[in-house]
């Protein structure tokens, strides 16, 4: 089963605990928000939780396959 997180950015308070949790889960013996696939971007007074793209030094090897029309794209070549 594939689970998805629906993000309501207006509820994000920018604490970045999700970054820590994502990294902690995949690293197992450490924590580093810079290795998380979830990233919080701050723009003015707003926080935007986003999925980090292919060039992030994330610990996980998740490659979400996204289908557009009849073509398949994975995250490493989107």
């Amino acid at each position: 089963m594939t689970l998805r997180i629906k993000v309501d950015h207006s509820k994000c308070n920018g604490c970045r605990h999700c970054e820590a949790a994502c990294a902690m889960y995949h690293m197992e013996d450490g924590v580093n928000p810079h290795r998380s696939r979830i990233r919080i971007i701050k723009q003015g007074d707003e926080f935007f939780p986003v999925l980090a793209g292919p060039y992030t030094d994330a610990k996980c090897n998740v490659t979400n396959v996204i289908r557009i029309g009849d073509k398949e794209y994975d995250m490493c070549a989107l």
């Binding site: 207006s10 308070n13 920018g14 604490c15 970045r16 605990h17 820590a20 007074d45 707003e46």
Partner: peptide, 12 residues
């Protein structure tokens, strides 16, 4: 305007 939290704080 909005709530804010410090790093890894569940209270905010």
């Amino acid at each position: 305007v909005r709530q804010m939290g410090c790093f890894s704080c569940p209270i905010g």
